[in-house]
Design a protein around this nucleic acid. Sequence first.
DNA 1: ACGCAAGATTAACATTAGATTAACAAAGCG
DNA 2: CGCTTTGTTAATCTAATGTTAATCTTGCGT
Lengths: 225, 225
Amino acid sequence: MHILIVEDEKKVADFLVRGLRAEGYFIDWIADGSEALPALIEQKPDLVILDRMLPRMDGLQICKLIRSQQLPLRVLMLSALAEVSDRVDGLRAGADDYLVKPFAFEELLARIEALSKRNPFASPERRLVVGTLELNLETMQVKREEKLLSLTAKELAVLELLMSSPQKVFSRERILATVWGINEDPLTNVVDVYIRRLRKKVDSPFAQDYIKTLRGIGYCLSDES
Amino acid sequence: MHILIVEDEKKVADFLVRGLRAEGYFIDWIADGSEALPALIEQKPDLVILDRMLPRMDGLQICKLIRSQQLPLRVLMLSALAEVSDRVDGLRAGADDYLVKPFAFEELLARIEALSKRNPFASPERRLVVGTLELNLETMQVKREEKLLSLTAKELAVLELLMSSPQKVFSRERILATVWGINEDPLTNVVDVYIRRLRKKVDSPFAQDYIKTLRGIGYCLSDES
DNA sequence: ACGCAAGATTAACATTAGATTAACAAAGCG
DNA sequence: CGCTTTGTTAATCTAATGTTAATCTTGCGT
């Protein structure tokens, strides 16, 4: 699930980003309210976590705009304001839920979970499957033909990317960018090395090879030959 | 839908009873906490709105009793206490939702609506078991192979989290967030230290290790190897 | 069909990030 | 006060990571 966080306090934002990423959500963050709408339209997240007090453009305004534009996403509003009238304002503006700061992380997770269940467009896919290969995002366990494989964190990250869109070709640059966060450095060949390591664990012990090389283009994962 | 209200302040109770009846709900009301359980068993409502501070028997207690009896109903807790720890206490006791007074009637309606839609019963287990390890949430006793272990409060909190979803991987961030709260800095390594202390008590004296490390990802509890 | 780059694979290695642990100091609590 | 719990620091240990360079493969131009 893709979540956009709109929050100006860096400390809070950091906390949210780290925590939710660790939970396996795909997170983007912006601090400026006026950037919210363009970002929403471009990124099309499933859920936006909206701070109520923002510089340049207030959270309530943004929420109303989202609703008037009929954008297909959930809004979870965060606020330090706990008064009745504040919460009513928030819900009136079209927020799906309203959470008062400070809050327990548990509570936030529960609300996100609840919202994503209500959401017909979101697919909180907690398991990826390709052929006999299976990745459980919850336990981070990888199995093939019911046999447990033990992968390292980076290996897992690469595999997750490949499994997220089977058949699709990922260039080295793309893999480097999403897994390592590097955008320029074609001097390295970590990607090749990790593909090698993945193959050793995921393909070699089995009859069919899932990880395919497309010379000059990139790699892809597929259970077809 | 049948709702039982347990609330000692007559003004608040009146407000609720009138408002909810007008919305078409079937409402009963009692003011005394000690009457709550008999009333629940007799009337079998779908939802109970429970004030936290009650004469004779506290709302938290009632909630715990409801859960331990496995009564098939939703609990919406009302309270003037807004602190994180209070809310967590409420949810820990098994409440399905927690609303802070004063609240807007709209909000209450929304929450009731949400609760009545929610799937079967997510009523929290009163005992967590993983392999030979057992945590009794009533007494907060921890046993392994029938031997009683003595854990400190923080150790317990960490273990409870891990046991709440065996197999599931919990990142340090996640553990930090739920056990220590939002204000802690991420530079600390308390989590590691507590994992160590837990292992010493929970794993070391026994043949098999339950607490697993997933390097670069987090920790998890599992009775598999 | 052949040779030869460009591209891809692989093993071995040094480095480093991450995890463990003990010891200590501060805060709580009887 | 004295004992326990709690959280920090820093030394140590360990496995994951990323580099290098040698080797192998593929496809293209002739």
